[in-house]
Simulated assay, not measured.
Amino acid sequence: MPNKEEKRITEQSSLYEHLEKMSVAELTAHINEENKKVALAIEEALPAINQLISAIEGQLKKGGRLFYAGCGTGGRLATLDTIEVQNTYGIDGSQIQAIFPGGIGCLTQTRESREDDLENGWHQLCDKHISKHDFVLGFSASGTTPFVLSILQHCKEAGIPTGCIVNNPHAPIAQAADYPVEVITGPEFVTGSTRMKAGSSQKMILDMISTSLQIRQGRVEGNKMVNAKLINHKLIDRACRIFMERNPEYTDYEEVKLLILKAGSVKKAEDLLKSKSDLDV
């Protein structure tokens, strides 16, 4: 049986020595060199990522939901994704949700001991009435986090499809998932600090997953965020410009702005105009 050091690449010693003796220029250059490896590691995993996204899409088409589950960096990045996707694509907080040890209210706490809790995550999912129509996606750099592993095991017993993003090969969490994604980013610049390359890979894959899903659900048209929420001046201005680009007969910016604000998004403004046009006919 291989030892933990062989199995957990993320815990292997950094390729760099005497970090404390390096200049700022040396530190940033070496960190950037390591970061270059992240996209290449994701490229190797693209076939598995594609299968994962297609499986999630199938569940969403049934009216199901996507639940992210993770601790530490992965859990916090996943929670951030659930927040950002709402504003970007104009959806509520029900379709994509996050499960974090102790609940989202514990997000800013540093008590990593909660990742050893074997029942809290499943209890949170039960409180949300998890069903076979939903999908649970676990995040764990080590691939061994008890909180995440227990959730996936409970889901398997209940017939709920699962996936995972891990950064070590042949990890227990990957073996427990229906759609595992292993992104082997290698030893960290600071030994064991998986908030670095492993965390970067998880953020990039989260972007791929949520962006692809929302595009596939029609929340983007052309390449524009036509359903984005109008939560600040920048987004209102962007929405006006998008609307005028898509509807060149409207040339009065202030008129468009009033319409956009009344409707709530570019798409809703266009639908409002279309409904009025249909009534006129």
Rank of each mutant, 00 (worst) to 15 (best):
L27T: 14
D92G: 13
V85A: 13
I42D: 08
Q95Y: 02
G103I: 04
K262N: 14
G222C: 06
K21N: 12
K61R: 13
A55T: 09
Q175W: 05
I205S: 00
A98C: 14
G192R: 09
N223V: 05
S94R: 14
I260D: 04
V281C: 06
V38A: 03
K62P: 06
S13L: 14
K21T: 15
K224R: 14
Q86F: 04
V183H: 09
F189A: 10
A55M: 09
I96D: 05
H170F: 12
S142W: 01
E84Q: 11
P248V: 04
D271F: 07
F135H: 02
S265I: 11
G192D: 12
I160H: 04
N32D: 09
G103T: 02
M244K: 01
D134E: 04
Q86V: 13
V266W: 01
I260S: 05
P169E: 13
Q153G: 00
S210D: 07
A171H: 10
L235I: 12
E182S: 15
K21S: 15
T88S: 13
I215H: 01
K224T: 01
L125Y: 06
A39Y: 09
F139A: 03
L272C: 02
S200I: 02
K267E: 05
L80E: 04
N227P: 05
V183I: 15
S210T: 15
T82R: 11
V190W: 00
A263I: 11
I91M: 13
E270C: 05
I242W: 04
H154R: 07
P169T: 14
T28R: 12
L66W: 04
E245Y: 09
E188F: 02
K21L: 10
A45T: 14
K61N: 06
M22D: 10
E33F: 11
T162C: 03
G163K: 02
A198F: 03
Q217N: 08
A269T: 07
K268G: 00
R241L: 12
H18C: 07
C164R: 02
M1H: 14
A176S: 08
M244Y: 02
L272H: 11
G138L: 01
E249Q: 14
Q86H: 09
H123L: 11
Q217H: 11
A269Y: 05
V181N: 05
E33T: 12
I96M: 15
V181E: 09
G159N: 06
M22V: 01
F189I: 15
Q59G: 02
N247D: 07
M208E: 08
D237Q: 13
I231M: 03
K257F: 04
R238T: 00
Q12I: 14
D117G: 00
L15G: 13
M244C: 10
N227S: 07
G121A: 12
K7P: 03
K61L: 08
V148W: 03
A198V: 08
K128M: 13
E188T: 09
E249D: 12
A177D: 10
T211S: 13
S201V: 04
P187M: 13
L273F: 07
D278S: 06
L279C: 06
S150L: 01
S150A: 12
L279Q: 14
Q59W: 03
F147P: 01
S200Q: 12
S200G: 02
L40K: 15
N168Q: 11
Q153A: 00
